[in-house]
Design a protein around this nucleic acid. Structure first.
Lengths: 176, 176
DNA sequence: CCGATATGCTTGCTCGCGCAAGCAGTGTAG
DNA sequence: CTACACTGCTTGCGCGAGCAAGCATATCGG
C-alpha cells in the first residue's frame, strides 16, 4: 500500500542544489504524502464543512457567532450559570486575551454580565443574563437539530461508537 | 439513551418572560444538548489539538505557516508545479482575497512566482520556485512523520477504514 | 465591430485573534 | 509588616481573514 506515483511531474526549474537533497522526485514525494494523508485531509475537509454550516446557521438564524453560542452553552451548563473567566478559557481552547475580548463583546451585547469574583478579586466572574438565557434558548433547538441532521443522524450507532474510540485514541496526549 | 439530566441547575434570574418560552429548564436542555453532541464536541477538540500540533511543528521547525505548506503541496502536486489562482482557491476553501494575499506574501518570501496566465490574462498563474521546492522538500518528511505518529499510526487499519466511511457519510452534500 | 455582462484578481476597510507588556490583587518568605 | 513572586485580566500592537468595491480582461448579443 505504499505510495504509487500515478502522476508524471516535470519538476520546475530543477537545478540540483547540493545543499538540500534536490528533491529530484518532489512530485512523487508529494503525491506519496497526499496518499498517505488522504484520510487526514478528509478529516480536515469534513470538519471545515460542518463547522461552516453550523456557524452560518447560527449567524443567520440567530444573529450569533457560533463561538458566542458555545460560551453560552458552557455558561448555562454551570450550576448557577456562573463561571470564572479562567475556567472558560480552558474549556474554549482560546487565548486569554481572546476570551477577554469576546466576553467584553458579549457583555456589551447584553448576553452576560461580568463582575469581580467574590473570593478572588483579581478574577472576573461571568453570569448569564436574561437576554443571554433567552438567546441560548432560542438557538438551542435549531442548533441541536442541525448537529443531529448533519452529524449524528448520518452515522449508525456502530459508526458513532467507532468514532468515539477513534477520537479517544487521537486525543491521547502521549506523543508518538 | 436520551438526555438524562444528571445535574441540578438553578436557573439564573428566572423571570418567566412570556415572549420566549421561558426556558424553564435551560440547564436541563443544555446538558441534554451537551450529551447529544458530546461526540461532535470530541470531534472538534480532536481536530483542534491535531491542527495546533501540526501548525506549531511546521512553524517552529521550518518557519512555515501550515497554510503555506498546504499551498506548496497543492502546487507541487500539479503537473509542472503550476496552478491557476482560482483553482487553488477552490482547493483551499479560502476566500478569494485571502488566497490573493497569501500568495502575495509567499511570492514576496520567494517561495513561488506569479505571472499572468497565458490563456487568460485576467488570471494569475503561480509556479513553484526553487526556494519553494526546497522549502517543501525540507518540510515534507517531518510533516508526514508527524501526521503519521499523531494520526495514522494511532489507528488500526480497521479504524482507518471505519473513519473513512464515517467521513464520507458526513461529507455527503445532501442536507438532512 | 461595439456595448453589456461576466470573470479573475486586487485593495480598502473592519474585525477578531495571539503575543507581550502592563496592572491590580493574592500568596509567601523574612 | 514589607518585599517579592505569581495570577487573572486587560490592552496596544500587528497580522491575517472576509466583504465589498474597483479594475482589467474575456465573452456574448446585436
Amino acid at each position: 500500500m505504499a505510495a504509487s506515483n500515478k502522476r508524471q511531474h516535470t519538476n520546475p526549474r530543477q537545478h540540483a542544489n547540493p545543499a538540500q537533497p534536490p528533491a529530484a522526485d518532489l512530485g512523487a514525494m508529494v503525491s506519496g504524502l497526499l496518499e498517505e494523508t488522504a484520510l487526514w485531509q478528509s478529516f480536515l475537509g469534513t470538519h471545515r464543512r460542518l463547522v461552516e454550516r453550523l456557524a452560518e446557521q447560527m449567524q443567520t438564524d440567530h444573529g450569533l457567532p457560533l463561538e458566542w453560542f458555545d460560551v453560552l452553552i458552557h455558561l448555562a451548563d454551570e450550576p448557577g450559570a456562573r463561571l470564572r473567566q479562567r475556567e472558560l478559557r480552558d474549556r474554549m481552547l482560546l487565548s486569554e486575551s481572546g476570551v477577554s475580548r469576546m466576553l467584553a463583546r458579549m457583555a456589551a451585547a447584553g448576553l452576560l454580565e461580568r463582575r469581580p469574583a467574590d473570593d478572588d478579586r483579581r478574577g472576573v466572574e461571568i453570569a448569564l443574563t436574561d437576554a443571554g438565557a433567552q438567546a441560548l434558548a432560542a438557538a438551542l433547538e435549531s442548533h441541536r437539530a442541525l448537529v443531529t441532521t448533519s452529524f449524528t443522524d448520518r452515522l449508525t450507532a456502530t459508526d458513532r461508537l467507532a468514532l468515539e474510540h477513534i477520537l479517544a485514541k487521537l486525543t491521547d496526549p502521549a506523543e508518538g
